[in-house]
Design a protein around this nucleic acid. Structure first.
Lengths: 127, 127
DNA sequence: CTGGATCCTCAATGATACTG
DNA sequence: CAGTATCATTGAGGATCCAG
């Protein structure tokens, strides 16, 4: 058995939409977005570079997030045998294509986030 | 202060992408997708109808999920004063437009889920 | 430097009982 | 019927220490 690096899944989704929706469960966890974004913006880089780019992200969560992304074939990991170790990460073709798709989707968020904020404030004020 | 119905947030995201990405944190929780999908497919309906359509969803989580969606202005709630109570839910215009955007994005998932599955199996087998 | 192993906390979810 | 209140579970995420 492989080590469990992730328990969350889209298993509760109806069969007919699971293939499309369960990627949302990957993107929905806390650090997948920032890590993908960093790799997209700054290109191939080392573990410690990503760490520096995202100070709030703990070492442990960076490792886990990268493993999940590697497992899904969104990120490629390359190890340079040396002392001290040197490991570089880079988006795969699939990873880049995902980011393009997300970007289109994110534009909905940009267009609507102010309205949503107003909606939330109205709702909270009404209680 | 309003009752906390949700603690999760995109607060850790970089300022420049938070407006676009934090909707993913709403969609990323367990039941938002199924509930939106049900409302989209079956149209306006009662609390108990949604419950029946999603047997694995507990009453409590349905209530919470609907409140969050209502708070974001994605779902509208209408109460008919009567005994026994009758409450109907329906997607708002904003909710429908979100679903359209998700649909486009989900097509990436449909196109890639088999490759991702294979990638996962390879990764798990390699351990 | 990379990242595995442990322990700990708390938010998300589930289960159950109760009520206007 | 449509919730609310409570209690239990559990898994994501954080902190720290250790190792090749």
């Amino acid at each position: 058995m492989s080590k469990q690096i992730y328990k969350r899944s889209g298993a509760h989704l109806p069969d007919n939409c699971r293939p499309g929706w369960d990627i949302l469960f990957t993107l929905g966890d806390k650090w997948t977005g920032p890590v993908l974004g960093t790799l997209s913006r700054d290109g191939r880089q080392r573990f410690s570079d990503i760490e520096k780019a995202l100070p709030a992200l703990s070492q442990r969560m960076l490792t886990l997030t990268l493993r999940r992304l590697e497992r899904d074939g969104l990120v490629q990991r390359e190890i340079y045998p040396a002392v001290p170790p040197r490991v570089e990460y880079e988006l795969t073709e699939r990873g880049r294509s995902l980011l393009l798709a997300v970007k289109d989707f994110a534009s909905w968020g940009f267009k609507n986030h102010e309205d949503i904020e107003r909606s939330r404030q109205r709702f909270d004020a009404a209680e």
